[in-house]
Each structure stands twice: as structure tokens, then as C-alpha cells.
Nucleic acid binder design. Structure first.
Lengths: 209, 209
DNA sequence: ACAAAATTACTTACCGGGTAGTAAGTTGCT
DNA sequence: AGCAACTTACTACCCGGTAAGTAATTTTGT
């Protein structure tokens, strides 16, 4: 039995819970300080162990980061479980509802905002993850657009691609402005407005410039 | 004469040029690696001096960063000199042109994308600068919207505020996606599309959800 | 059922690299 | 003479990773 095939035992549920606490602590620290400036000791402190203890569980800081990202994905999927994944118009309603929800979760929003931008830097461990994430999200939005367009006899693949990227773009860009200046930017209202604007332009384009 | 009032002589033009080279090198390094992970030595190397030499000119790394940001602002203003600051419809045309230009300046785009998101983290030296920057930009876009709306007898201040934030938001958000995946995201096309969509929705709102 | 063996979940201690800032000295311009 | 523009050298930290040891727990052999 070679070491790559060997099953790590991982029998204890108490350990699993501990790892989850570490992952949540890591999200907090990376969100507040960024990956580069977020020290393992701060994460370890939150769960009452030393930084070597954290490394025992995750091997390296890089590995911890990607596990954090994967873990959050799983949690989100779990939240949607039972409910079907929304498509067509419902997807857009879902995005608007998400923006509304996000306005009450500044910590999480900040983590994604900081990490996604940081990920474009040289040799960042989360770069591939974010590339893949945006591809998937754009794909889902594109698909929803195609469904809505098909219902109305529209077929503009280039427009739909631009619109999908734009919708994700506004959501992210507004988050940064909102994090910097919450009193001046209404995250939910602005996001909803922009999504409607983009959808309207897809379904019935108008020139204004 | 207390030290705050005292004029540093700064007579030599050669020195001024050297400082500008440092500022440009700093923008490069901070853009490529972020502020936190961008070491002074790398900046110093680019201009052929030691990191202590850089500190001699700018006092501290924090101070260097804000000088970099101020310097870029000045350069941009200088580029627009002679030409009047665009207003009304021209401002939006200017934004679209900027997006087109930006697709050829990945380095600069990355610097702003990385630094703006990093600035929301705890105690970041550029936070205030970015807060102010976005306020100013939103103000300018809002003003342009008001002008265009006035021509057409529209008066929807709340909508205009949301639209202004949204336009800056898409521009920024699309930049991150484009930096991560340049082959999958057309920065200029998507930005132009989104700006038109948002303008159309301001000038003639439609419900689609 | 039970003792030995193996493994897990850590801690303490340390290493090594990196980095911002400072102090003191040197050279050359004004 | 005096200041500007550096360099060299050093300090003081911080931080990720590793090694070695320990207690607890699980697995295994009988």
C-alpha cells in the first residue's frame, strides 16, 4: 500500500469539527487581513491552538487557503440542498436576493472581494480556483440568459456572454465600493438596479451613446 | 522655523526624475505583488539603488504608496490637460474609451484592482485614498447623468446614484475577471455593453423581473 | 478481552528567510 | 560649510515550516 493510496483514517468526528472551526477562523483572518498578511498564528489563536497545530491539519498555508475556499463552496451548496438550482429568470431573482443577503454579511463579502483581487497577483495559490469559479459562474448566468432568451425568440450569443460577465462584474465591483463606504453605497439596491438594466438590454437592446 | 513648515530644497531636477522613476517602479511592484507582499528591495532594484535609498526619499513604505497613488492621479490629469473634462454624454464615451485603452495596459489595471481591494483590509494605508477616489468618481458620473437627464426632462436622483455606483462597479469587476482569464472576457466590449445598459435603464426604466 | 503497536493530535523549540526601519558614514553638489 | 543623496551595516520583527517529543486514542494480534 503506497502512501498516496492509503486512506487517512479520519475516524473521529470531533476532529472534523475542529477542522471546520479552523477553516472558519481562516476565512475570518484572510478576509480581514488578506491572505498575504493574514498570519497562521491569528487563525490558530481563534481555535485555541498553536500555528503548528494548524499546519498539522492542513500541511501548508497555501493548502489551507484552497481548503477554505472549497469548504465555503460546500457550505453554500448544502444551503441550497433540497431546493433546485435556480435557472432562467429565477437565477436572476436569486442573484438579487443574494445581494440583499450579502449586505448583512460584510465579513464574507470582504473575504471574497479581497481574495479574488489578490489572486491575480504573481504566484497566488488561489488563482486557478478563482479562474475556475468565474468560468463556472459565467456559464451558469449565460445558461440562464439563453433560457430566458429562447422563451422570447432571441438569439444573441455574443451579447449574452458580455451580459453574464457584466452581471458578475457589477456585483463584485459594487461590493468593494460598499465595503469602503457603506453609507454612500446601497449594495442591494444598486445591484438589483444593475441586474435589471443588463437584462433589459439583452432582451431589448437600445443605443444611447 | 519648525520642521513641518521648512521647505525641503529639492532644487535638482535630476532628483525629481529619480523620484518619478521610483514611483513608477513602485506601481509596477505593488501591481504585480500587492502592497503587502511588494518588498521595497524589488522597487529599489528597478531604479538601481538599495531599499534604504528609497526610504530616504519617501520616509516609509506607507508614505510611498500614497505618493504613488497621488502621482498617478497627477499624470492622468496632465494627460487630459488642454482637453476639457468631459461631461454629460461625453463622460460616458470617455469611460468606454478608457476601457478600450485599459485592455492594452494590464499592468496599470492590475495595480488598481489589487490595491483597491486590498485597501478594504484592516489598517491599510490607502483606504482613505480609495474612499475619496470612489466618492469623487461617483460624483462625476452622477453629475454627468444629471446633465443628460435634465436634457430629457428626467429627474430620478435615487436611480442616478445607483447607476453611477453600478457603472464604476462593472468597470472594476470586469477588470478582475479579465485579468484572471483574458481569453474568456472581452474587457472593452463587456464594459461598453454594461454602460449602455445602465444608461438605457436610467433614461427609460423597464421592469423585467 | 487485553496488551502492544501504531497513529492522531497536538506542543515546544527552533531555523531560516524576508522585510521595514534606523544610524552612521561617504561623496559630491551648491 | 552644509546639505542632499545615497550606501553599508545593523536591528528587530514576523512568519512559515520542520523536528522532536508527548499524551491520548485507535487498531491489531492473540
Amino acid at each position: 500500500m503506497n502512501p498516496t493510496t492509503r486512506q487517512p483514517r479520519r475516524s473521529r468526528p470531533e476532529t472534523l469539527a475542529r477542522r471546520e472551526r479552523i477553516l472558519e477562523a481562516a476565512m475570518t483572518t484572510f478576509g480581514a487581513r488578506g491572505y498575504n498578511k493574514g498570519p497562521l498564528t491569528e487563525i490558530a489563536d481563534q481555535v485555541g491552538m498553536t500555528h503548528a497545530g494548524v499546519l498539522h491539519h492542513f500541511g501548508s498555508k497555501d493548502r489551507l487557503l484552497i481548503e477554505v475556499l472549497r469548504y465555503r463552496d460546500e457550505s453554500d451548496v448544502k444551503d441550497l440542498e433540497g431546493q433546485h438550482i435556480p435557472g432562467g429568470l429565477d437565477l436572476f431573482r436569486h442573484l438579487v436576493r443574494t445581494a440583499l443577503l450579502n449586505a448583512r454579511r460584510a465579513g464574507l463579502v470582504q473575504a471574497y472581494a479581497v481574495l479574488s483581487a489578490e489572486s491575480v497577483t504573481e504566484g497566488h495559490p488561489a488563482r486557478d480556483w478563482f479562474v475556475e469559479r468565474y468560468r463556472t459562474l459565467r456559464g451558469q448566468v449565460t445558461e440562464a440568459f439563453r433560457a430566458v432568451c429562447a422563451e422570447r425568440g432571441i438569439d444573441e450569443p455574443a451579447t449574452v456572454d458580455r451580459a453574464a460577465a457584466s452581471i458578475l462584474g457589477v456585483m463584485d465591483g459594487l461590493q468593494v465600493q460598499w465595503l469602503l463606504d457603506p453609507d454612500q453605497v446601497d449594495l442591494a439596491e444598486s445591484t438589483a438596479f444593475a441586474i435589471e438594466a443588463i437584462m433589459a438590454q439583452v432582451l431589448d437592446p437600445r443605443d444611447v451613446l
